[in-house]
């Protein structure tokens, strides 16, 4: 009975953190607007730099989409925590007896939602600019892209909280996040490529499973270790 009450408290905590983040974003629209424009610029830049034909488009489109999302979200993940540093909100949160993991999960959910919205808007533009005609099972993208985005956002939120405590906060996040995110990026790019080219090189969906495994492992470790990062002094 008590544990049931605790878990409902915990969910309530996550929801109230989430509501706060969504409300702030709804009023300012800072994160989504800046990410959207940034990602759009990356897509345009790559399209001009490589000027791909239809075949090469299928080969590289997955990579461009992933890298565009990666750069765009790094620019806004720092802001998610920098907002809490102003007016000592983070110190106040640390002093509350609530669980740090709930705060972390709410931030991840909020950022996941923002990045997903950006991808949703960007997707059609992407298909137009790169003249994409996918040859594989397009519905699998609905599985791959959220998995990859979750890997990016969960790690990114965690390491943004970690690097925000350092002297060069904006610089440190990509330096830590990119090496750790590399395996997920590889899995995401390869599975998107398989879907777009329809080459059946991965019939058992191994890369998607690996991506899911990566999500589970890294999210669990982040949830366990977040309190340590929050209380580091």
């Amino acid at each position: 009975m008590e544990s049931a009450q605790n878990s409902s408290n915990w969910t309530g905590l996550v929801l109230s953190h989430l509501r706060k983040d969504l409300q702030i974003e709804w009023r300012s629209r800072e994160a989504i607007n800046s990410m959207l424009f940034f990602a759009l610029l990356v897509v345009v830049l790559f399209s001009m730099a490589f000027d791909p034909t239809a075949d090469t488009s299928r080969e590289i489109a997955g990579g461009v989409l992933c890298v565009a999302t990666l750069f765009a979200s790094v620019s806004s993940l720092n802001q998610a925590w920098a907002r809490e540093i102003r007016h000592q909100v983070l110190d106040a949160l640390r002093m509350t007896p609530s669980d740090g993991a709930a705060l972390f999960l709410a931030k991840v959910l909020a950022n996941f939602l923002f990045v997903s919205i950006v991808q949703f808007v960007l997707g059609p533009i992407f298909f137009v600019f790169y003249n994409l005609h996918p040859l594989g099972n397009v519905w699998l993208l609905l599985l791959v892209v959220p998995f990859g985005t979750w890997a990016l956002v969960a790690n990114g939120t965690f390491f943004a909280a970690l690097s925000i405590r350092s002297r060069n906060r904006e610089l440190l996040l990509p330096l830590i996040l990119f090496p750790i995110f590399l395996p997920a990026l590889l899995a995401m790019v390869l599975s998107v490529k398989t879907i777009l080219t329809g080459d059946n090189s991965d019939p058992s969906l191994l890369w998607i499973k690996l991506l899911a495994g990566y999500d589970i492992i890294f999210t669990t470790v982040s949830l366990i270790l977040f309190d340590i990062v929050l209380e580091a002094e």
């Binding site: 970690l162 690097s163 405590r165 350092s166 002297r167 060069n168 610089l171 440190l172 330096l175 830590i176 340590i228 990062v229 580091a232 002094e233």
Partner: peptide
């Protein structure tokens, strides 16, 4: 990371 942060916080 060890160069960019300082003190006990950096160690954690």
């Amino acid at each position: 990371t060890r160069r960019f942060a300082a003190g006990a916080q950096m160690q954690t």
